[in-house]
Design a protein around this nucleic acid. Structure first.
Lengths: 153, 153
DNA sequence: ATGGGTGCAAATGATTTGCAGTAAT
DNA sequence: ATTACTGCAAATCATTTGCACCCAT
């Protein structure tokens, strides 16, 4: 698979996240810490499976239940966001409140990259929908599938 | 739940579909017939569960396996299309080759309506992505969530 | 010491598969 | 008569839940 670069937009460190959680009175366990580090270190949205496999290297007794419960916790506390690539399992990535992005899913190598879709593009579309259908759009899902740079050659 | 109107774009009759399939040498069984009629009669994308429940009224011994296998068959033969509303199960609707549409999913009454999103809106976006990311988009998923006309009041 | 976190086993729910029987041609 | 379809039971796979135990505070 490909290399993971740090996301260029945000520079969240796992320490920042740890402080945030600690300040709210939550405990920082080995697994919670490990999970935060994974999210900070990769650009690839992670599935429960992937997280389990990675964490199991350091903590051989982790259980998938813990992973699922931790993900639920991190989502509830707005640390990570759930995304759906329609391949049968949910994936998670660091929540970035400031920019709204979508994904490019390569059907060749399965890598996922982010695209920022200018807000006004969809806003215009949504306000048109609002008028024509009297439907108040509150959220949307938009994901692109195709072939990445590498897989095209 | 709401009323189902016939889709205004297409006037596919289940007889047309039956002929198409028969012409290809497929058998027209009671269940296949029933399923086609359901798809022609409703605007709401159907889940396997819903189809099973509806068909079971007339054919009390239908099994869910048959429903799933029939759906697979209809998808493979381009009679229906699979859509994903991210609520845990797949849904199916008549395949309409001529117009590319998306859905408005009401979070109040759960009804799903179609929106035609002008081709050029997304095309423009996709060709921009193609240039900026050297990523060749071949398909996309775009669904809207919110509140419909009725649920707004 | 206390309750937030954890592991294990078993449950859930959508979808799939194997196999033997049945009905559409 | 063929063999495409069907039903039933059991398997799969991601995710959830119950419960007793344990570790971060």
């Amino acid at each position: 698979m490909g290399t993971a670069h740090n996301n260029s937009h945000k520079h969240t460190s796992s320490q920042d996240l740890v402080e945030t959680l600690r300040a709210q009175g939550f405990r920082i366990t080995k697994i919670r810490q490990a999970m935060l580090e994974i999210f900070v270190a990769t650009t690839q949205p992670q599935s429960a499976q992937q997280l389990l496999a990675t964490i199991a290297q350091e903590h051989p007794t982790v259980n998938k239940t813990t992973i699922y419960r931790e993900l639920e916790f991190l989502v509830k506390n707005s640390i990570v966001t759930e995304i759906d690539i329609l391949d049968g399992m949910k994936r998670y990535e660091l929540h970035e409140s400031d920019h709204h992005h979508h994904h490019l899913v390569c059907e060749g190598c399965k890598e996922i990259q982010c695209v920022e879709v200018p807000h006004h593009d969809l806003d215009a579309l949504e306000s048109r929908i609002n008028k024509s259908h009297k439907f108040k759009v509150t959220s949307h899902v938009l994901e692109f599938f195709g072939l990445c740079k590498n897989c095209l050659s």
